[in-house]
Design a protein around this nucleic acid. Structure first.
Lengths: 329, 329
DNA sequence: CTGAAAGCGCTTACAG
DNA sequence: CTGAAAGCGCTTACAG
């Protein structure tokens, strides 16, 4: 058996009540001398608090559960950094649960694992909950916040980038660089895909503002993956577009590599701007110009809001990082 | 208040004991009819088990805590996949805790967060524990296993690649391709760095076997990062080596990009083989030839061993994946 | 097959 | 400043 406050009580001669009070630092309820004796004994005995007991009586905890999808996106690390930072500053703890990749069962397991214990709250990082699971989450009384994903339903709290602006600004940027035939590649615009549709609308708007007529084959949908980028590049015949907005860094890299394979030079023959701006952009050559999202801040702010119990939605900033993959036409 | 087994007992007319038995599926202790009524009531009431209570009485749980360092390495995802797979197959749950990047306090917080609750066991993914923290871990009665990191101390259980072999085979491979001046870049060989030293020894051994005299400046140490690769490439003057073993994929990419910058063509002027073999190798051009580690299997096996309480160490397989960054000399 | 009761390790009014 | 006692929601011998 491990050592409990009862053992400390026995050793010091105080009651468990007093031991509990000093160990959980209920200041003002004990004297310095008492505290010292108890802390000493705790250290000597190698005491470790049993949080299961604490949570049981407190009906809450200082643990934030982060549920995250395990896609090959690589920006979740930055979001988690932001979360950890804020949590660390405020003495909260964080546990992370993988919800699989568009896997309803995995999602449900993650959610259940989280909900089965007292929790400060839940942060959902780019996981698009299935209706049943959303229901499950709502029915629990636990506060939650979505990060890096937005909804039409404004009753759902989220922190994300403004995807309409992302599509708009990426396109505008290419237009300013003299492009008129601009592709949009690798994103999902099925009816339920809010992010993809917003980006698409932003793209259309930018085109329209400059009097450019959208051509159907400029849009190459996909699932934000490297392979989607390769497929999109194949779909664009040589010369059909002079620039492409890639739905993610991976899509951008897929385009880059496939372009090289079919003998197209970037940015000489084709310009590319990718969305996300993770460190992958600087690993490849030419380095990818990107619409960079502030993932760290998303995590930090999401945690801040969750902790403070605020229920407003917010957008974090986006920024154009010019690197080497776009040329002036 | 949320609904408890007491509520279900009241609603069905059974005792909490019976409710507990059917809900935790103590087969043989109840009739089908009873079970149905209770499950029905549980569903109607929206019952969710309070694991804090269960863990308190059981003094254990089916939760595996994974402690992982937050370096910019990108292979932990695969390890986690392997862990989740095995955990899923056996009905275990997994929570992940970030231990920072060589951050003693962050490590300690992660460890404490884990140890504060009943646990099936702990998996440490490429985290090199500070002595104090290792002590803390050992003093808890919880089983633990290291993944992707090995020790001289064989009392510590781990699953990793054979780093001596990694260094040996990478070097051997380059020798077979006709190289005699072979660099080793980006790894840490300070006395306490077990991995780096093993790889270095394997490298030396391969050199020696082919009667090649090691030159001090062939070794460029570092911290496995992209920047270490860049620095190493700068250190190798043009023509000093004809091939390089990169300590990680990121080091390899740093070499690739810096080589391009100073006008060296890979593999024409310089061959590179990187260690790890993550998907980054296929994202860059030329694609990196790599000594590929089986990270997924490490996670899977580590979890298997942890669950079964076995305490043997094991190596997972390594494999040479030929891509485009090595040429026959 | 089922129930009454004790207990897991902690916290917190309540009374001093 | 300190202690006795009740209670958090579960599980499990023990007795039927």
């Amino acid at each position: 058996m491990s050592v409990t406050i009862k053992d400390i009580a026995k050793k010091t001669g105080f009651s468990v009540a007093t031991v509990s009070r000093v160990l959980s630092n209920k200041t003002g309820f004990f004297s310095q001398t008492t505290a010292q004796a108890i802390h000493q004994a705790a250290a000597d005995l190698g005491y470790k608090k049993n949080m299961a007991a604490t949570e049981l009586v407190m009906q809450t905890s200082n643990v934030i559960a982060v549920i995250i999808n395990s896609t090959k996106t690589n920006f979740s690390d930055q979001i988690i950094m932001g979360i950890q930072k804020k949590a660390g500053e405020t003495g909260k703890r964080v546990i992370i649960l993988y919800a699989g990749d568009h896997d309803q069962t995995a999602q449900q397991i993650a959610l259940t694992t989280a909900l089965e214990r007292p929790l400060l709250g839940i942060l959902l990082v780019s996981v698009d909950l299935y209706p049943d699971n959303l229901q499950l989450l709502k029915s629990a009384k636990v506060p939650f916040f979505f990060i890096s994903i937005s909804f039409e339903d404004t009753k759902l709290n989220y922190i994300a980038s403004d995807d309409y602006q992302i599509g708009y600004q990426a396109t505008k940027f290419l237009i300013k660089h003299g492009h008129r035939k601009i592709g949009l590649a690798g994103l999902d615009i099925s009816p339920s895909a809010h992010t993809g549709n917003l980006r698409f609308h932003g793209y259309r708007k930018a085109l329209a503002e400059s009097g450019i007529n959208f051509q159907t084959n400029w849009l190459q949908t996909g699932d934000y993956s490297y392979e989607a980028g390769v497929a999109a590049m194949n779909a664009y015949q040589k010369g059909k577009v002079s620039a492409i907005v890639a739905a993610s860094d991976l899509v951008g890299i897929g385009i880059l590599n496939q372009a090289a394979k079919i003998g197209l030079h970037i940015p000489a023959d084709l310009s590319v701007v990718s969305i996300d701006g993770t460190n992958l952009c600087q690993l490849v050559r030419p380095a990818l110009t990107s619409i960079t999202q502030d993932f760290y801040q998303m995590g930090y702010l999401g945690t801040t809001y969750l902790i403070s119990g605020s229920n407003k939605n917010a957008y974090t900033e986006i920024q154009i990082c010019q690197r080497a993959s776009v040329k002036k036409n």
